[in-house]
Amino acid sequence: MKIVLSQDITSAIKKMCMEICVCLDQKALAKLKHAREIEDSQATAFALDIMIKNADIAKKTSSPLCQDTGMVVVFVDMGQDVRIKGGYIEDAINQGVKEAYQEGYFRKSVLDPISRENTWDNTPAVIHYNIIKGSEFCLSVMAKGFGSENMSRLFMLTPSEGIEGIKKAVIETIKDANAKPCPPVVVGVGVGGTMEKAALLSKKALFRGLDSKNEDPILNDLEEQLLEEINLLGIGAQGLGGKTTALKVFIEKYPTHIAGLPVAVTVQCHAVRHNSITL
């Protein structure tokens, strides 16, 4: 049996939150630079220049990339032979979030949905637990901004709509979102399962590396086709028009019911802010 200490969970969450809110994912930065190189539109090129300079200033001054430092989403992949000692795992995760958002001078954006009263420490995080075989313990953290989250959508398609229906749903989501989610965006798509399973897959999909290929060749083709079609929409950086509306599309699937075809689309802004660690 493997023992994981709750204090180590707190430190890992804190460290990852403090890094991701300040340092832009290097693969995202490379893709933004490429988008700038190929851009013809003057205003769009100007916007991309500012995004690239922003990443540099944020890193040099240890300032958040974006003032919306997000709501923290955590995926816990926990081996069934792991035991947590020293306290409740959920408290340990939230303590890490609290310390990071206080010490990092990040914005506290989390509140009660009805009273709209702020919790003032950016907790609670949204936590998803997955029990796996063996004794690994992995934490994946994302700081999810809501300009893009508000543009995310769920479609309960009929089986007859098939792959064309999936493509239509994704394209419609990005087209309707237009400039609102701070394009160029990264698109996470969850296909299958039930309503909530599709939504979860669409979030989890975003943890893949921006230069990775889907191991499933059919999904890989679909990712490439969708990226091409999204970029033909011409929305461009900040909706100013241009060649790059999305940096990457990720698709994850799960078996579903004979009567259904759930499709969820999580939209993520150009500030790619996630990381994982195995304790």
Binding site: M51, K53, N54, I57, A58, S63, L65, D68, H270
Partner: peptide, 10 residues
């Protein structure tokens, strides 16, 4: 420019 929080701070 959305997302350029550190730039605008400057």
């Amino acid at each position: 420019i959305g997302g350029a929080g550190a730039y605008y701070k400057s």
